[in-house]
Amino acid sequence: MAGDRKRGGTGAVADALDGAWTAAMGLTEPPMRALQRAIGAARMPWAFLAPNLAFFGLFVFLPLLIDVWFSLTGGPRLFPSQRPYVGADQYRHLLACGNYLDPSTCDQDRFWRAVRNTAEFTLFQVGAIVVVSLATAIALNRRIVAKGFFRAVFFFPVLLSPVVVALVWKWILQRDGLLNAVLGAAGFGKTLFFVSPGWAMFWAIFVSVWAHMGFYTLILLAGLQAIPADLYEAAEMDRTPPWRAFARITLPLLAPSLLVVAVLALIKAVQIFDEVFVLTGGGPGSATLMVVQYIYETGFSGVVQDFGLAAAASVALGVALFGLTLAQLRLSRGKEGAT
């Protein structure tokens, strides 16, 4: 794109890019110049903002409003004006429950199972991510050979698509898969991992930690590198044992980064869908059904498409996310202020 500056280096490619860039300029400039003459230079920022704002309005803010309207209306129709107003019925239906600890007593038992599963998933996944990312960041921050290679090894699954991640592990975890072969060599029988609810949830958590920990490791690594080295040198001179240096120096100084990692992971975990959906399909039964999958199935893939109920569940999820995002913004602002 920056053809002007690249020309010396890469020759033909840069020339072609530069040519295309100039040609695009020739095409777009006359109408934009005419627009500027028509509305005046002072209003041009709005012209520049218009496409982006139009997209936001059409695909984010308008849907947010319709979301609320959907959740207050019933019936099978998709078009908002054809949907009869039912007040808080959808929410009543969604939230009605004899005993919240026992989903089978709820009207929408699948929703409450999904809430329970998502809570369990989030608790263990975020906990595991914090611990594993911290351990990995500390290992990578030590004086080691091939640091770049090791960092890349832990990071690369972040870039893989959730579907690919799920298939990679599904292939290993299937009945005649690699893991059962390894376990078999160690004298264990074959385990059907996706038939047992406990194992299915365990692997859902394990796989998503595997896929995402590299991202959080990078954040923690940056945090570790910001801790002044002379603190550790002073500790070493005082013959402070490593675990004590960790507890007294590393942990307190890394606390803001750890908090950011925890909140970011939390926001992601609450919205978990792709990997788990492909890996377990929400099963066995509804043992790994998550809230977003509930929304997707209620609104789109079920026998009966219930847009109102799906929207009500979306709004509930949105409220939870809103709180978490506010917390994140506060934290990241606090962090900026501190450094």
């Binding site: 903002l49 982006n52 704002l53 936001f56 059409l58 695909f59 984010v60 803010f61 308008l62 849907p63 947010l64 409003l65 319709i66 979301d67 959907f70 998709l78 078009f79 908002p80 919205q271 869908f273 977003v292 929304i295 997707y296 609104g299 789109f300 847009f307 799906a310 929207a311 979306s314 709004v315 999820l317 949105g318 996310l321 809103f322 995002t325």
Partner: peptide, 27 residues
């Protein structure tokens, strides 16, 4: 105000506007 609006759209990931976004695309 615009900066705030752009920031606010961070709060609405596709997971929570799935149904109405589908409506818009359908229309």
């Amino acid at each position: 105000l615009v900066t705030l609006l752009v920031m606010a759209s961070l709060m609405a990931p596709i997971t929570i506007i799935l149904v109405p976004a589908y409506l818009v695309v359908n229309e």
